[in-house]
């Protein structure tokens, strides 16, 4: 019997990354902008998507991941948009192969596809789903030091949305501090402030989506 050492230097998530690349190329061909939404449970991912749906209507669709139930898909469908639910049955994050399967159920060609990840600020950050941009949501009641406690989600995102801004007078949340912590990890992070109660920041977020869409698909 002989021993052999193989020097591999291969990412552990190579198979996920290959599938993610397939998602990215497929959706780019179909001119669909894909956004992956990450946050703790209860930070307001579904509420933000509901607010965007009011403006975007059937131009947007959502793939939504939860450990159990299709409650979030039902909530989103009430706004007249297409929602495909992935029930992970215990898994704490979405993987590219789940998105690939969900895409088989997606009908038509929405302009914007959102992937609402499982509410969890740790595990989802490790998995590329084939998105063109990643948003991390941080709600004001969670505290302004979240970026330091859960750095990976902030390191890998393009956009930070600080949600529930209407609660700022009632909770100990220093907006400047939260932004400084997040930017200390990721100097290129774009930051938006929103409240689905007052409507604050939604227009800016919609303008960002439109701008990102046009820079990605200039001929569309």
């Amino acid at each position: 019997m002989a021993q052999k050492r193989v020097v591999l230097e291969e990412g552990i998530l190579k198979s996920n990354d290959l599938l993610a690349q397939k998602v990215r190329e497929d959706l780019r061909r179909r001119r669909i902008l894909v956004t992956n939404l990450l946050s703790s449970p209860g930070a307001g991912k579904t509420a933000l998507l509901e607010a965007l749906a009011q403006n975007l209507g059937p131009q947007m669709a959502v793939i939504v991941g939860d450990v159990q139930t299709r409650r979030d898909a039902e909530r989103l469908e009430r706004h007249g948009i297409q929602a495909v639910q992935i029930v992970t049955g215990g898994t704490c994050h979405l993987e590219a192969r789940m998105v690939l399967r969900a895409l088989e159920e997606l009908q038509g060609t929405p302009r914007y596809l959102f992937i609402e990840n499982v509410g969890n600020l740790v595990c989802p950050a490790g998995f590329d789903l084939g998105e063109q941009q990643r948003w991390v949501l941080l709600s004001t009641p969670e505290g302004d030091d979240k970026p330091l406690k859960y750095p990976e989600a902030f390191l890998t995102s393009h956009v930070l949305v600080i949600t529930k801004m209407d609660l700022v007078p009632h909770v100990p949340f220093d907006v400047d501090q939260a932004e400084a912590y997040a930017r200390s990890l990721n100097p290129r992070l774009r930051i938006f402030h929103t409240s689905v109660i007052t409507g604050e920041g939604l227009e800016a977020l919609l303008a960002h989506l439109e701008h990102t869409y046009r820079s990605l698909f200039p001929d569309a």
């Binding site: 052999k4 591999l8 552990i12």
Partner: peptide, 18 residues
């Protein structure tokens, strides 16, 4: 703050086989 250059890897460096 700054730009993270290294520290995000999950990479199989080498495998010994029989």
């Amino acid at each position: 703050g700054g730009t993270l250059l290294q520290g995000r890897d999950l990479v199989i460096e080498a495998v010994d086989l029989e």
